[in-house]
Amino acid sequence: MISYLPYPVRIDDIVVETEDGNLKTFKLVFEDEAQKLAWRHVPGQFAMLSVAGQGEIPIGIASSPTEPDHLLFTVSRAGKVTTALHQMHAGERMGVRGPLGNGFPITTDMKGKNIVIIAGGFAVTTLRATLIYLLAHRQDYGTITFIYGARTPGMLLYREELKQWAERSDVDLHVTIDREAPGWDGLVGFVPTIAGQVAPSPDNSVALICGPPIMIKFTMPPLEKIGWTNDQVYLSLENRMKCGQGVCCHCNVGPKLVCKDGPVFTRTQVNKLPVEY
């Protein structure tokens, strides 16, 4: 039997991620030790964040299963529930229901392969979870290329971690911003351009791409040019959701339910679907 009852969690910490103050990362800890121990997720899965009296929203899980003491969710303030969340403080109670969805194929299709992660804007959240996981199981994967772009330096998430990853020799990190900015000495340019310049050969490789639809659209041609196929590319879809468990029907993209069949699909799968996302 499925359950619609969220687990009670406490907000342990809130980090304002971006210069516009619109993105905050919530560090959540379980109130119940048994529920904490029973929680299992894979990167790419999401959960329903629940604020009593406001409602529930589906948000990608930004923490890796290899960080077992807490859950991280980076939330953009946009609607009713996210606005309420942004007004909450450390110590307050909320709810988490999940984990939901399928997640990235970390133990199947990705295993033993070179991994290319391409992120645009705040879609980087589940890819952060993925990278942390890959680094914790480094020997199971080939090269790791992480391409991440934001509008401005101040709109980059997880800036402290980006610095740490930049120093590692086992991750090929490329962080870019859209336009020149004072004090920025890194890459400048849109994600598709950078991806075309730094993406490795498609041999024995898998790419995970998350970002605005327009970014995904323009990232494919440069990859295809060097031989990447749609089967090797995983995307994560999002749609309005209520139950998150394949019952309420809200998130359907034609015959597929984003919550249950996805949110992760190969580009081959997505291309077969009506454009209802």
């Binding site: 409602g55 529930e56 139950c243 309420c248 809200h250």
Partner: peptide
């Protein structure tokens, strides 16, 4: 037809 919406009432 079996789809549903979920809302909080206080």
């Amino acid at each position: 037809c079996y789809c549903f919406d979920v809302q909080d009432e206080v």
